[in-house]
Simulated assay, not measured.
Amino acid sequence: MNDIKPAVEVRAVSRTFGGRKGASVTALESVDLSVAPGEFVSLIGPSGCGKSTLLRLIADLDTPTSGELSVFGKPARQARVDQDYGIAFQQAGLLPWKTVTGNIELPLALHGAGRSERRARVSELLELIGLTDFAGHYPDQLSGGMQQRVAIARALAESPKLLLMDEPFGALDEMTRERMQNELVRICAETQAAVVFVTHSIPEAVFLSDRVVVMSPRPGRITDVIDVSLGGPAERDDSLREDEAFFRGVAKVREALHGVPVAGARGVDTR
């Protein structure tokens, strides 16, 4: 009997926010989603469709109005207490008065890890993100892409089995963004963490994901789930971005998102 629990299980989840003068806004309505351990799933949809709200519910930063949600078979709150997931947002959110080392080791320090344990883990993570030579630098001495790598390392500090990422590369220029996508593919392959990734970029979603979840305008519902069959991490490098299979995947997600058939994958506006 297979007793492997999903990394994330969302069943009939809705979230309604109260408004002024008794008005209310339904951000999510009857959402069902299952993410397997080690799977990379992107959420994509128009602004205001509830992507970030869903991520916040998974992270126990908000509570659903109705429905059930679990992380590795646990209630979201218990998963947070057990540090089963790490979170990375669009802004790196590094503490400016702490060095790269200090920022990465912060979650470990907060949970009582000893100095030698913290330094060993930071050393491992700095090698993973390719910033060993910048351990003593401060955030304002780093590029935007380097800051995001530090934020990802901090999210990985306690070896979570799940990463929750809300447009972590949205503020980066296109070249840096593509390099960070390549880095994230490599990091996820090495850590085997499951990922739920919010993005507005169709090419980004296709490049990174095993599946792309397409959401409707508010109230947010899942309207389609696109399986992306582009191979494993070894195949997901810069050459993939010029591959016909990649363009077909982009076109398929674009059609699901906009409801407009795409005659040819190349030459279309995919952002």
Rank of each mutant, 00 (worst) to 15 (best):
T63H: 13
T63Y: 06
T63L: 11
P64A: 10
P64I: 03
P64H: 07
P64N: 11
T65Y: 09
S66H: 12
G67K: 07
E68Q: 15
E68K: 14
S70C: 02
S70F: 05
V71Y: 08
V71Q: 04
F72N: 07
F72T: 07
K74D: 13
P75Y: 10
R77K: 13
Q78T: 14
Q78C: 01
A79N: 00
V81N: 13
V81G: 08
D82K: 01
D82V: 01
D82R: 00
Q83A: 13
Y85C: 02
G86Q: 01
G86F: 04
I87W: 08
I87C: 08
I87N: 06
A88K: 09
A88L: 11
F89Y: 14
Q90N: 10
Q90F: 04
L94H: 01
L94M: 06
L95M: 15
P96I: 03
P96M: 04
W97G: 08
W97E: 09
K98V: 00
K98A: 14
T99A: 01
T99H: 04
V100F: 09
G102P: 07
E105I: 01
E105S: 13
L106W: 01
L106K: 07
L106I: 07
L108A: 14
A109W: 12
A109Y: 11
L110R: 10
L110V: 13
G112C: 04
G112H: 06
G112W: 08
A113T: 08
A113M: 12
G114Y: 03
R115N: 11
S116W: 07
S116P: 06
S116L: 13
A120D: 15
R121P: 07
V122L: 02
S123D: 15
E124C: 02
L125F: 02
L128A: 05
G130N: 11
L131W: 01
L131D: 05
T132K: 13
D133I: 06
D133S: 15
F134R: 13
F134T: 09
G136M: 02
Y138A: 03
Y138R: 12
Y138D: 02
P139C: 09
P139M: 05
L142M: 13
L142E: 03
L142W: 03
L142R: 10
S143P: 02
S143L: 04
S143A: 08
G144L: 03
G144S: 11
G144N: 03
G145P: 00
G145V: 03
M146T: 00
M146E: 05
M146V: 06
Q148D: 05
R149W: 09
R149E: 08
